[in-house]
């Protein structure tokens, strides 16, 4: 068992330290035919906001080599509708469900966190912050999400770890997901060069793929590695983890658990392989 909220009154124990990253696994059982129940340590859901959000317009996904750029706008049906649709499944889930809550305003964040926490099966909440959130606002949002009373994990924006991570821990985060995907820009494929340079045919989004993994290891080496851990809360490693060996490297650098992102779509079985590697330790 892995404990992700050792100082929280309820704690958040996972049978194995592997889980999908927010945004790659839906809200429940879409992979039921490919992954047996109980392979995961926890189910981290797709983003959930208090109000429904529509999908982004225009191009939403772009690949370049092995890298994937994604911009969906975090579409979701809103906390109430998602609870109606998936609450029963969460209740039966053999592993803790961790809804990924999109931080909007403190009032909405609090309301959504309280709603989600009422569902049986929910073991904790992962709070997703906007890349440009101020430190004070991040703390305010964290306090709002703590209204759920459940263990709170905060997913820290990639470019803001230095500024935000210590503040969030000080403010009471039970664990941190390091990190949210880096923001990136790619030219759209059929863009003439001159247009790409003028910025009119570019796609902005979240970057996934193997190039992110060394960046993740750098963050872990600085913030989680034994002897360097300035944060003193469990760290969940997220970004480009592609194999059991990658996952074990994260653990050796001080991570308590790992999240697997878009690789799940190509190779859902990678979650099983990583879980098996942890079991064999």
């Amino acid at each position: 068992m892995i404990e992700l909220a050792p100082t929280h009154k309820y704690g958040l124990s996972l049978p194995t330290p592997v889980m999908p990253a927010a945004g790659v696994f839906g809200y429940g059982d879409v992979y039921r035919d490919l992954l047996e129940e109980g392979v995961l340590g926890a189910l981290v859901t797709n983003p959930i906001s208090l109000r429904p959000r529509n999908v982004a317009q225009g191009q939403r996904i772009l690949t370049r080599g092995e890298q994937v750029l994604l911009h969906t706008g975090l579409p979701n049906a809103g906390a109430k509708a998602i609870l109606r649709q998936y609450g029963k499944y969460w209740e039966r889930s053999p592993v803790p469900v961790i809804p990924h809550l999109v931080a909007t305003t403190p009032a909405e964040t609090s309301k959504a966190a309280v709603l989600l926490s009422a569902a049986r099966g929910v073991g904790g909440i992962e709070l997703g912050l906007a890349e440009n959130v101020s430190e004070d606002k991040a703390v305010e949002l964290l306090h709002a999400a703590q209204d759920s009373g459940l263990p709170l994990i905060v997913q820290v924006p990639f470019s803001r770890v230095d500024a935000l991570a210590p503040r969030l821990v000080e403010a009471g985060a039970d664990a941190l997901t390091l990190t949210a995907p880096p923001r990136a820009v790619l030219p759209l494929p059929d863009a003439p060069e001159d247009k790409a340079e003028s910025g009119t045919r570019l796609m902005r989004g979240r970057l996934y793929g193997p190039a992110v993994f060394p960046l993740l290891l750098n963050v872990l080496a600085r913030f989680a590695a034994p002897g360097a851990n300035q944060l003193h809360v469990p760290i969940i490693a997220c970004g480009g983890v592609a194999s059991p060996a990658d996952a074990l490297t994260c653990i050796s650098l001080g991570a308590a658990a790992v999240q697997v992102d878009v690789l799940v779509w190509r190779t859902p079985g990678v979650l099983r392989e990583i879980a098996a590697a942890f079991k064999a330790l």
């Binding site: 790659v24 696994f25 839906g26 996904i61 994604l70 579409p75 878009v262 779509w265």
Partner: peptide, 20 residues
């Protein structure tokens, strides 16, 4: 584009008369 094929990624959502 359909990266996951199972309703997990939300990349393929479209508006319809009955919501996305």
């Amino acid at each position: 584009e359909m990266p996951c094929g199972v309703g997990a990624c939300d990349v393929c959502r479209i508006p319809t008369r009955h919501g996305e």
